[in-house]
């Protein structure tokens, strides 16, 4: 049986939005699917060395985020609110046995998930390849399309 293929475009760099690509990638790899994740724009935050477990989530502009009490939008913009929301989500994850982003990234690498960093974004934001975790390839839109054209599942997150 030829292996199925999946690609994911990871375009977000917040704690909450880093989960879906990594959960799907690691699970797909465990289901014998060849996985490629293309990290573009803020998604590159996930790939920066020692940064995966430092991602944050903000209650600002995020009205669906469950909070212990209703928080007015203006209050969400105060200093410390982002840190509080981040700490809250991390403690919820820990309590429910949800792996950290760093752990999922390690598991993805270990299971052979191919990681491609967007060249254009790196140039745009001034990121160097050395600043990213080891084993990352750098490529452009055509590199992703080439793999996506032969994949059964292609997701933009």
């Amino acid at each position: 049986m030829t292996k199925k293929k999946m690609t994911i475009i990871a375009s977000k760099g917040t704690l909450d939005m880093a989960y879906p690509p990594l959960i799907l990638a690691t699970t797909a790899a465990a289901m014998d699917v060849d996985v490629t994740i293309f990290f573009t724009f803020y998604g590159l935050e996930i790939l920066k060395k020692n940064n995966a477990d430092k991602l944050k989530v903000s209650p600002l502009g995020n009205p669906a985020m469950p909070m212990p009490m209703p928080i007015p939008t203006l209050v969400s913009s105060l200093p410390g609110m982002e840190a509080m929301a981040t700490a809250m989500m991390k403690s919820m994850c820990k309590k429910h046995g949800v792996a950290s982003i760093g752990t999922l990234l390690d598991l993805a690498i270990e299971s052979g998930v191919k990681l491609i960093a967007c060249q254009m974004t790196m140039d745009l934001f001034g990121y160097k390849k050395e600043a990213l975790v080891d084993g990352v390839e750098v490529g452009g839109a055509a590199a992703w399309l080439d793999i996506a054209a032969d994949s059964q599942i292609n997701l933009f997150i």
Binding site: T26, T27, A30, M31, G97, V98
Partner: peptide, 13 residues
Amino acid sequence: KGLSCPLPILKTK
């Protein structure tokens, strides 16, 4: 036990 998606699957694999 005590682990959430996707860890039970990853560990089973």
